[in-house]
Amino acid sequence: MSLSTWLNRHAQNAVGALGTLSRNPVATALTVTVIGIALALPAALGVLVQSGRTLAGDWADVRDFSVYLAPGIGLDRAEALARELRVRPGVESVRVISAGTAVAELSKDPGFAGALAALEANPLPHTLVVRPLVSVDGAALEKLGAEVQKSNGVDLVKLDLEWAKRLSAVLDFLRRLGLITGGLLIAAVVIVVGNTIRLDIQNRSAEIEVAKLLGATDAFVRRPFLYLGLWYGLLGGVVAMLILLIGLWALGEPITRLAGLYGSSFELGGATGGSLLAVLAGGVLAGWGGAWTAVARHLAAIQPKIA
């Protein structure tokens, strides 16, 4: 078989499968919508997790820990320690707050202003504010704090591990929930497509039987159904994209307004080109996989016969 004939045959199968879908518009629309919803749910969860990570970034200050230097330690030593900490693994940034800056900030608070004015000398030490990377979990954060505590000139390390552990647990939970939900719903798409293709195989059993009797290979018989599954998946992916985009558009503004009422700048993240492409690719793979499963199970059972 020549390459052009081979390509022509694939093109005919692809177009023919589209024709099969268009001949049953209602059934096709229902199936594609079910696939679209099933694909949109994990995609929406993905966007939610991504937005949660952004929110975690906003909350990163709750993971910040303060390093109070001992009284009498100079600013030079504070700057040197900050440089040492910045190159440590797991540290995102280190900010130096000099004793002078700290007392000036504190003086702005009317409750402290009078008391500070009564003091002869600045009682506050130089302080380092260390921001760990988001990827650093609670145990690693505890270890980092203990190591910093041993550094020369450090008086006290103040670390709120409970917050760090809670945030880490929430992110881990969401990540796993996304994986499980995504896996289950992709499996649902495979089953929906597989069942639809199974019915199509049954409806066309006479044609398959004749084709096999005339010498059709398994690949020849299988190909139209694989294209059918591929189209189901692709169209379902398009529907999922639309659901996702419309959903984000509809919920984005109210969520931002709600977050604003709680003093947060949280915004629901938009679907990126990559995530939309992933939805389409997921649909195509799930559709093709479902078709392959059905074809592998049911085509072999149809064999030619002479009455």
């Binding site: 006479a206 096999k212 010498g215």
Partner: peptide
């Protein structure tokens, strides 16, 4: 088997037309 079947012609009582 498919290659062999391509080389024989079969006519059925019930035609088996699509």
């Amino acid at each position: 088997i498919p290659g062999y079947r391509q080389q024989i012609g079969v006519v059925f009582q019930d035609n088996k037309l699509l």
